[in-house]
């Protein structure tokens, strides 16, 4: 089973498991909207994982890219008359450009200073959104974000106003992002990124300009995060100021760590666990996020591979016990 999940082909193994999850998710959860929300955050966590799990870069700027994607797509639809696909593309491109700039400046410093720089950019973005209330709605959020029909070259393909139809769009995009992420990780670029995480001095000595690789990681991560932000705005027809706040960056990083860094399925698991728990617990206890803190502490201390690491470990042990049982 774990060997199956570890198989290398980008359309085999793990990808098939994800396809199955995407089909089952709306059936198992109380609503398709919740399922969409999970996939949107899983997308953001996946993008964070590329930086953190593979590149070893802890970025607190993810909320900035997410929020920028939300605002840009929404404003393009409201004021620019953009359709669905152009709005999503515009968000992804803007996210890529923004992340490239943030990355370009932040990677000039290493370690704690790098983290602080991403944090500073994120805060700047927040206050900018707060200040430009004429455009963003400030504290009240940007209201009445439309969810246009899916159309291509003026031909209408599908009406997305039902939760199920919108989930299908999100699931297809998530699948594309997941397959893309697997390819990126298995590419010369991805392998070099891991090398830089492992030993940057050596990576430079064998000929890599490590800054270029970190910057491209930011570009890709920013594009996907902004895409997730745009999808989220269309899901809830609204852009709360929280989308670009520090708490968004935190949530994305926490989902990535809880799910397991360095594993793409982990990001889906982390986002799924957090969004579902939040949905259930927030109805019961408004301070449920305290439990989140506890969960993070436990996972960081006792489950270094995150939830996915735990699942893998359990599967391995289960298979070993069964093998022993079958042996004469």
């Amino acid at each position: 089973m774990t060997a199956f999940l570890k198989s290398k082909g980008i359309f085999g193994g793990m990808t098939l498991a994800v396809a199955a999850i995407l089909v089952l998710l709306p059936l198992l959860l109380p609503s398709a909207t919740l399922a969409s929300e999970i996939l949107i955050f899983a997308m953001a966590a996946l993008a964070c994982n590329l930086l953190l799990g593979y590149g070893g870069l802890l970025s607190f700027g993810q909320g900035l890219f997410f929020g920028a994607g939300s605002y840009l797509a929404s404003l393009a639809m409201i004021h620019g008359g953009f359709g669905l696909i152009p709005a999503l593309l515009a968000a992804a491109v803007a996210g890529a450009v923004l992340a490239t700039c943030v990355g370009w400046l932040s990677i000039r410093r290493a370690g704690i200073y790098f983290v602080m720089l991403t944090l500073a950019f994120s805060q700047m973005g927040y206050f900018l959104a707060y200040t430009l209330s004429k455009w963003t709605g400030g504290d009240n959020g940007l209201l009445d974000v439309p969810r246009p029909d899916l159309s291509l070259f003026g031909i209408r393909i599908a009406d997305l106003s039902s939760a199920g139809a919108y989930y299908t769009l999100v699931a297809v995009l998530f699948f594309a992002v997941f397959v893309g992420a697997r390819r990126v990780i298995d590419s010369p670029f991805g392998s070099t990124l891991v090398a830089i995480r492992e030993n940057e001095t050596r990576a430079a000595a064998i000929g890599f300009d490590t800054r270029h690789f970190k910057m491209l990681a930011f570009t890709l991560s920013g594009a996907v995060t902004a895409l997730a932000g745009a999808l989220y705005a269309m899901l809830i027809n609204y852009v709360p100021l929280d989308n670009i706040a520090m708490s968004m960056s935190e949530n994305i990083v926490i989902m990535t760590i809880i799910g397991g860094t360095g594993s793409l399925l982990g990001s889906l698991l982390g986002a799924g666990a957090l969004v579902t728990l939040g949905d259930i617990l927030s109805a019961m206890w408004p301070r449920w996020q305290m439990l989140l803190g506890l969960a993070l502490i436990l996972i960081v201390m006792f489950l270094r591979g995150g939830l996915w690491g735990g699942v893998e470990h359990a599967l391995d042990r289960f298979l070993k016990i069964r093998e022993k049982g079958n042996a004469p």
Partner: peptide, 17 residues
């Protein structure tokens, strides 16, 4: 060995294989 390629290793759409 890939390091000799320098920035050509930024290729992210191909497999290392």
């Amino acid at each position: 060995a890939q390091g000799r390629d320098g920035d050509r290793a930024l290729t992210f759409w191909r497999s290392v294989a």
